[in-house]
């Protein structure tokens, strides 16, 4: 990265750097910080100044329940996508030629359709008279249609599917950065394939794993469409409640307070992550 600001072998003067960075900071300030701060200020000023909206969140156990549920689903989705993504990323890193192209396409193609379309596709597969239920009965595992749609399982499966590319790509990047010599060196020293994986490959891929995990986890926390379409009320996440307050009850200050609570959680979790896993060093994926 250091080379980015070097110009004819010299560093750019600070004012030029500031100028180049200005558009980015303007975007952050006007398109992100300003709106979110004005929303949050609404939560402590309306309808009366004070913490009334936050008191409402604490008083009703519903909000704690939904928040815990949101965290739980996000954790499950993160773990599931890690388990599925790691082998795929390894296959991608090792594949050559047409195979590499095919695998990459499989990961990237879903990005070309919207989340809504992918979610709707799952509801077609999982419905009472859908393909999955048909298959289960044909194989003889079940005698009548079982409830697959509108369950936690449906929400987790679909969210994992939608979010998996965010896990695959960072891990793939990290794996590609591992010089093949390391593996060979370990082999020469007598390490078998399993030991090579756990002592060389996996530790070196960890930055990618952490990057992917935090991307998937944080995105999952704010998920809304998938739980709304595939889950029952028992799977509704905090974002659904926020949207309901905004669109249905037109209670902006209370919705803002919910946003405030979610923001605090997300910030705390991100900070904890970076503390424990030294996130700052890992993002670069440097060896």
């Amino acid at each position: 990265m250091a080379g980015f600001f070097a110009w004819r072998g010299r560093h750019l003067p600070p004012p030029v750097v500031a100028l180049l960075m200005a558009p980015f900071f303007m975007l952050i300030v006007f398109a992100f910080l300003y709106p979110i701060l004005s929303l949050l200020s609404l939560s402590v000023t309306e309808p009366q100044p004070g913490l009334g909206n936050y008191a409402k969140i604490v008083e009703n156990p519903l909000y704690a329940t939904v928040l815990m549920r949101t965290l739980w689903i996000a954790v499950v989705v993160t773990v599931c996508s890690l388990l599925l993504a790691f082998p795929l990323a390894m296959a991608m890193a090792q594949a050559r030629g047409a195979m590499a192209l095919l695998l990459t396409a499989c990961v990237l193609l879903p990005f070309w359709s919207s989340v809504l379309v992918r979610t709707a596709a799952w509801s077609v597969l999982l419905q009472r008279n859908g393909i999955v239920n048909g298959l289960l009965q044909w194989v003889g595992l079940t005698s009548e249609p079982v409830r697959l749609l509108y369950t936690e399982g449906a929400v987790v499966i679909a969210m994992t599917h939608v979010l998996m590319p965010f896990m695959v790509l960072p891990i793939y990047g990290a794996l590609r950065n591992i010089p093949p010599d390391y593996g060979r060196a370990a082999a020469i020293c007598g390490a078998g394939p399993i030991r090579r994986f756990f002592e060389v490959t996996f530790p070196l891929a960890l930055p990618g794993v952490m990057g992917g995990a935090i991307l998937v986890f944080l995105t999952a926390l704010g998920y809304f469409i998938t739980p709304a379409l595939l889950g029952s009320p028992k799977e509704q996440m905090i974002a659904t409640l926020i949207s309901q307050q905004l669109r249905e009850f037109l209670d902006w200050p209370f919705a803002a307070a919910l946003v405030g609570v979610l923001t605090v959680f997300v910030t705390a979790i991100t900070l904890a992550f970076s503390k424990v896993f030294r996130f700052d060093r890992m993002m670069g994926g440097q060896l």
Binding site: Q127, R128, N129, R147, L149, Y150, A228, S232, P233
Partner: peptide
């Protein structure tokens, strides 16, 4: 209750699909 429907379209669809 299997389905808590959210829109008029959805209730029409869950009836139609024998959901």
């Amino acid at each position: 209750i299997d389905v808590w429907w959210k829109t008029g379209n959805q209730v029409q669809q869950i009836l139609r699909d024998d959901e």
